[in-house]
Simulated assay, not measured.
Amino acid sequence: MYGAEVSKQTITTITDRGMEGMAEWRSRPLDRVYTVVFAGRHQREDPRRPGRQPIYLARAVTVEGTRDILGIWAGDGGEGAKHWLSVFTELRNRGLEDVLILVCDGLKGLPDAVETVWPRTVVQTCIVHLIRNSIRYVARQDCDKGTKDLKPVYTAPERGCRDRTVPGVLREVGHQYPAMIKLWSDAWAEMVPFLSFDVEIRKVICSTNAIESVNARIRVAVRTHGHFPSETAALKCVYMALMPLDPTGKGRRR
């Protein structure tokens, strides 16, 4: 556009000015207690290019009701639950003593990792992910019926009602799609906690949408950048994409 050439090293030198700020931000002290923490990861899936490293992200709601991103971490592509254990331990070392509710995407082993660091934390599985995974076990022509039959389970007016709705679901679809019922049964302990709260609170803690909105911002930055030569370069790109996410502070207070 300007008829000038800039080397990759020059660009790296300029962007490295933000590395000190990123290191300070990632190690800053945290509040003692957060009401809700959303744990998720961003990973652009591409079967043609295996070996992509996920970026782990933790976003929280403070006691005052504002939102805050606690940190970002690069994974090695291995077992997610083990990596989350190291992430939670780091958050505790930064001063986070207790989390009331932790919302996650249903990763196997994650509740055990949470219990190791914060024994009293209530783990809530994302209902959206659970429904999305359920569809994989249902024939295409039965998708609408399957999701309709499951709706009374996660929209019960109170937690006690789910004991009366689950047998109905088992009778309707259990004989045809037992794998779907097993999926819900395995995730049952982490699915039902949000039913104990009012509708307004349910809307906040029933899914990881708070993480997905941030992932959309990361996705744009990563897609624009393309290949990253190192883990540090990837974290630097994500950090710079997140910093101007809410310049006025209105999003934190929403």
Rank of each mutant, 00 (worst) to 15 (best):
M1Q: 13
E5R: 15
E5Y: 10
S7F: 02
Q9G: 07
Q9M: 13
T10H: 11
I11C: 02
T12Q: 09
T15G: 00
D16P: 00
G18F: 15
G18W: 11
E24F: 02
E24C: 02
R28L: 04
P29R: 10
L30M: 09
L30K: 13
D31R: 15
V33Y: 14
V33L: 14
V37M: 02
F38P: 00
G40S: 10
R41W: 08
H42D: 06
D46E: 11
G51M: 05
G51V: 05
R52A: 15
Q53C: 02
A58R: 06
R59F: 10
V61N: 11
T66W: 03
R67C: 09
D68F: 04
A74C: 14
A74W: 04
G75Y: 08
G80Q: 07
G80W: 00
A81S: 09
L85Y: 01
F88L: 12
F88Q: 07
T89F: 10
E90C: 14
L91M: 08
G95F: 00
L96V: 04
L96K: 07
E97T: 10
D98T: 10
V99R: 06
L100Q: 09
D105C: 13
D105V: 07
G106A: 12
G106E: 12
G106Q: 12
L110G: 08
P111G: 00
P111D: 00
D112G: 09
D112V: 00
E115A: 15
T116Q: 15
V117W: 03
P119G: 06
P119R: 11
R120Y: 13
T121D: 10
T121Y: 00
V122N: 07
V122C: 07
V122Q: 06
Q124A: 06
V128C: 05
L130M: 08
R132Y: 00
R132W: 02
Y137I: 07
A139G: 14
A139H: 15
R140N: 06
L150K: 12
K151V: 02
V153N: 08
T155I: 00
T155C: 00
R162I: 12
D163T: 14
R164S: 14
R164C: 08
V166Q: 06
P167H: 03
G168A: 05
V169N: 04
L170S: 12
R171A: 14
Q176K: 15
Q176G: 02
K182G: 07
K182P: 01
W184E: 03
D186H: 12
A187D: 03
A187G: 05
M191Q: 13
M191V: 11
P193M: 12
P193H: 10
F194I: 09
F194M: 10
S196R: 10
S196M: 07
S196W: 08
V204E: 15
V204L: 12
V204M: 15
C206D: 07
S207Q: 04
N209Q: 09
E212K: 11
S213R: 15
V214A: 01
N215D: 01
A216F: 09
R219Q: 12
T224M: 03
H225L: 01
G226K: 09
G226Q: 06
G226L: 08
G226P: 00
H227F: 10
A233R: 02
L235W: 03
V238F: 02
V238Y: 04
Y239G: 04
A241P: 01
L242E: 06
M243P: 01
D246G: 10
G249N: 02
K250Y: 01
R253F: 05
